[in-house]
Design a binder for these strands. Structure first.
Length: 468
RNA sequence: GGUCUCAUCGUCUAACGGCUAGGACAGCGCCCUUUCACGGCGCAAAUAGGGGUUCGAUUCCCCUUGGGACUACCA
């Protein structure tokens, strides 16, 4: 190969939210650029005026930033119409492209005819034969037209870094529309012009673009331009192995951001979807990933999106955060008037898979649920015993000063002073009295977080409940 | 339908043509334990099928089967 500096691009179209698959494509590009000391370009492919929305572009940019994929340069195709126009004129002048005046209805009819007779549907090339005079005449009459690329009838062979040698027969393609007009280029054309002008060395994109590659190579040839090298990465799949869609899971990165996943976890997860390091490990930092990423080790087959693994990784990264970081992050997923403390946070940390789950698990700290008194009882213990145990504990707690109200202390003291009683009959009622829930953190953790006054208050309320 | 493409545990994957086919997630069991989690230990689980090539195929070749992508005046 050549020793040009590596330059890659991520080229999303702002016609929807950044998709998990798109995020991974961006990530692989970024990783490859960093691993090879190259540049990572972000190119917004907004040639489709109708469907492109500023909102989506902003979503893509913020999503990439969230993942930590900073770009070296940002380009919008909508700002480059003049450039495409020149190339389009060149193609028309060299007769490699021509104006087509066929109407959509005509095309539709021809297509159906071909499909019915079992032929691959492709454009007949009818307008190829138009003379300059005829074209002028039609234009003057105001006939709508598009620009078609005269597809050479030849075999296209190219090497894909991931898939090896791939061959297509362009004779089956038909003449493609490459622009709606001189200032309205279409994807396959604008893409070729930009990859060349920006001197992109490696095109790393989703497998759905594999079939576009020969067309793009042919357009580049007609323009006298060199093509970059290609690498088509496998698709991310639904559990039924079809292309990942919202039928089975959230597909937009933003849903995972708002769901409380950490960027590091998502980064790690996405990197391992279709790629694997030489050494067998599953937790890797960004730096390690950059150091070890190789395009050659990307899988050929598609990978099913496995939320369980993401959850596991996310838990791992959540548990690696400092106590302060975790508390601060979790606070963002809580109502403003819930003042989340470090001790509260620590009590729920190992019990959540994402920050979005904190709210449910920690709500009892802020609103003691109006629970049924029956759940205060451990197995078949009599209510009187629960009441007695709680009163006993309240008495013990009275004697402990505020400063000693730590989970370690409380655990030590309470276990010692109730050692003659069945543990379940002491601590289950206590825990439920404090949390109002059948599942919760330990009573010691809760009491430390709540403090002496509130803890005693909740215990008294439980006792009253039992007396009702 | 046509073109292209893919194929190791349920899932993500490892294995210069040479080991009881390894790891992780999920599952199950045990331990820890007042609950739920965390954690520790363990169990179960795969080379799609058929032909070659070879002393030897997960690995190389062919066929079958199955899956997927693409087939726009979207990208």
């Amino acid at each position: 190969m050549d020793n040009k500096r590596v330059k890659v691009r991520f080229a999303p179209s702002p016609t929807g939210w950044l998709h998990i698959g798109g995020a991974r494509t961006a990530l692989f590009n970024w990783l490859f650029a960093k691993a090879n000391g190259g540049e990572f370009i972000l190119r917004i492919e907004d040639t489709d005026r109708e469907r492109s929305k500023k909102e989506f572009e902003e979503g893509i940019l913020s999503g990439l930033k969230w993942l930590g994929l900073e770009w070296d340069e940002l380009i919008r195709q909508s700002e480059r119409r003049e450039v495409y126009k020149e190339y389009l004129e060149q193609l028309i002048a060299s007769k490699a492209a021509y104006y087509c005046f066929c109407t959509k209805e005509e095309l539709e009819g021809a297509r159906e005819g071909m499909v019915v007779s079992g032929l691959p549907p492709k454009y007949s090339g009818r307008c190829r034969a138009l003379t300059d005079a005829e074209i002028e005449g039609k234009k003057r009459a105001g006939a709508k037209n598009v620009i078609r690329f005269k597809m050479p009838e030849k075999k296209v062979i190219f090497k894909d870094t991931i898939r090896g040698t791939v061959t297509f027969d362009a004779a089956l393609f038909g003449d493609q529309v490459i622009a709606k007009s001189l200032i309205e280029p279409l994807y396959n054309f604008a893409n070729v012009v930009d990859d060349s002008e920006m001197q992109i060395t490696h095109v790393i994109r989703g497998e759905e673009h594999l079939a576009n590659t020969p067309r793009q190579i042919l357009i580049a040839e007609a323009l006298g331009l060199a093509s970059p090298s290609f690498a088509h990465i496998p698709l991310i799949l639904n559990p039924d192995r079809s292309k990942m869609s919202k039928r089975f899971a959230d597909v937009a990165l933003k849903d995972y951001i708002s769901g409380g996943y950490l960027p590091d976890a998502m980064f790690n997860f996405l990197a391992f979807l279709g790629w694997h390091p030489r050494e067998d490990k599953d937790i890797m930092s960004r730096n390690e990933l950059v150091k070890e990423f190789e395009l050659e080790r990307v899988q050929k087959a598609g990978a099913v999106f496995n939320i369980e693994k993401l959850n596991w990784l996310n838990s791992h990264y959540i548990n690696r955060l400092s106590s302060e970081e975790f508390t601060e992050l979790a606070q963002k997923y809580l109502p403003d008037d819930w003042k989340f403390t470090n001790t509260m946070a620590e009590s729920v940390r190992s019990r959540v898979k994402n920050l979005g789950e904190v709210k449910d698990l920690a709500s009892f700290y802020f609103n003691l649920p109006n629970y049924d008194k029956a759940i205060l009882l451990w197995k078949k213990m009599p209510p009187a015993a629960a009441e007695a145990n709680l009163s006993n504990i309240a008495k013990i707690l009275e004697g402990i000063d505020n400063l000693s109200f730590t989970k370690e202390n409380l655990e030590k003291i309470l276990i010692e002073k109730t050692k003659d009683l069945p543990k379940g009959e002491v601590f289950w009622p206590l825990r439920v009295a404090l949390s109002g829930a059948e599942k919760s953190p330990t009573p010691f953790e809760i009491m430390e977080a709540l403090g002496k006054i509130e803890s005693l208050d909740r215990i008294m309320r439980a006792i009253n409940k039992l007396r009702e």
